[in-house]
Each structure stands twice: as C-alpha cells, then as structure tokens.
C-alpha cells in the first residue's frame, strides 16, 4: 500500500520535473559544477573499490579455472564479469553512497528548514533549481566513472595475475582484449547513464518527501539509498538480459 502510494507520488514528481525542464532549460554552469563535485568526491573511494574488486575477480577466476585446468581463461572471466557487470554496478554504488545520500539529505534539510518554500516564493521552481543540475551532473559523470572503473578493475586483475599468481600477463591481456568489445564498453556506459538517472531522481524525490523534524532527514536519506540500491541491481539484471541475452 505504502509502496503504491510512493510510486504514485514518484510518478507525479517525474511529471512535474518534466514540465519544469520543458519551461526553462537548466543552467550549464550549475550542471558542470555538480558534475565536477560528484566526480571529484566519489573518485577516491571508487578507485579503491575498483582495485579490490579487480584483485578478487582475478583470484577467484584463477581458482575456478585451476580446478578445470584452464588458467588462461582468467582474462576472459575478468573481462566479462568485471567489464560487463561489476564495474558499472560498483561505480553506481559509490555514486549512490556518496552523491545520492548527499542529494537526499541536502534536499531534505532544505525542505524542513523551509528553504524549498523560500525558492517557491522567490518564483524559482525548486525542481528546476535543485534536481535538474544534479540529474544532468550525474548523467555526465557516471558513464565516465564506469569506464574508469573498468580499466582500474582490469589493471588490478592484471597485477594479481602477474605479480601474485606468477602467470603470463600477455596471455591475460590477449584474453581480455579478445573478450571485451567496443559494444561492451558502450553497453556499460549506457548502464552508467541509466543508473545515474535512477540515483539522481530517486534520491532527490525522497529528499523532497522528507517529513518534518530532524528525523525526517535521516529517514529520507535511508529510504533513498535502499531504494536506489535495489533499483540499480534490478535494472542491471534487466539491462544485461537485453544486451547479452
């Protein structure tokens, strides 16, 4: 019941947002500022996570294929799992954890401190002012971060294969190169784009819905990050079905 009610409100939110965007194009400066902030803030933690996802993909890939007697499939495994699935999802998860929660809590604070009311009274559409730059900022940044996560994951895997497992780096790279196509990179960027749209819209939506009082902020932020996480993994599955059958 509550879910249906929220879904209905979200639909209204989307319609209102669409209308606001149609009336007035968002300011480029604000978009770039958001993009820069989101990118710079999320970059360090994303790099760390991508490295260690890469290391473990290589380790487990090597283990699995050692039992089957085909170690040189590690490159293929890392390329498939890392490039197609893990990198887009971890990039989205990091952006959701950093930028998404920040959006939800900032907007929720503005809601309870009447700053959103103040925007309205100053004849500035709050959806235009608050949501549009965040959405477009994320949409600019997340595909790029996804590609970055892909290369860092591959690099870390390569390092484990060569330095820790003592296997051939050249074979790994050849496998990986043979597996990863331009289409894979494009699909992963599309995933990043879709995840970015979800993170921004859902996080902002919960911020706007925040109830009165300080606990409203915590609740909004929580609801946002949980909803975004579930939505991203579900959408990831759907997109993989569409792209890879």
């Amino acid at each position: 019941m509550r879910f249906l009610e929220s879904a209905g409100r979200f639909a209204y939110f989307l319609v209102d947002f669409g209308r606001a965007m149609a009336r007035r194009p968002p300011s480029l400066g604000a978009i770039l500022e958001e993009a820069f902030r989101i990118g710079v803030r999320s970059l360090p933690v994303l790099l760390v996570i991508a490295v260690f996802v890469g290391t473990n993909l290589a380790l487990q890939g090597a283990n699995a294929f050692a039992q089957l007697g085909g170690q040189n499939l590690v490159g293929t495994f890392v390329a498939m799992a890392g490039v197609r699935e893990m990198a887009p999802v971890i990039a989205a998860a990091m952006i959701a954890a950093k930028a998404g929660t920040e959006m939800a809590s900032q907007i929720a604070v503005m809601r309870i401190r009447e700053q959103i009311d103040a925007l309205e009274v100053m004849a500035v559409n709050p959806l235009w002012y608050l949501v549009a730059p965040r959405l477009l900022g994320i949409v600019l940044v997340l595909p790029a971060l996804t590609i970055l996560a892909i290369f860092v994951t591959l690099l870390a895997s390569w390092a484990v294969v060569v330095l820790q497992l003592g296997q051939s780096g050249a074979v790994f790279l050849a496998e990986a190169r043979a597996t990863v196509t331009g289409a894979d990179l494009a699909f992963s960027m599309v995933k990043g784009l879709a995840f970015g749209v979800i993170i921004a819209l859902v996080s902002c939506f919960f911020g706007f819905q925040a109830g009165r009082g300080p606990e409203g902020v915590g609740r909004a932020t929580n609801a946002a990050v949980v909803t975004v996480s579930v939505a991203v993994v579900c959408l990831n599955y759907l997109l993989s079905v569409v792209f890879y059958g």
């Binding site: 401190r113 009447e114 700053q115 009311d117 103040a118």
Partner: peptide
C-alpha cells in the same frame, strides 16, 4: 517574504 526562521541557503 521573510520566513520565521530565515530560510537562508546554508
């Protein structure tokens, strides 16, 4: 309009 608590942008 002035809001009771100011409603300034932090």
């Amino acid at each position: 309009m002035l809001f009771q608590d100011g409603a300034l942008f932090d």
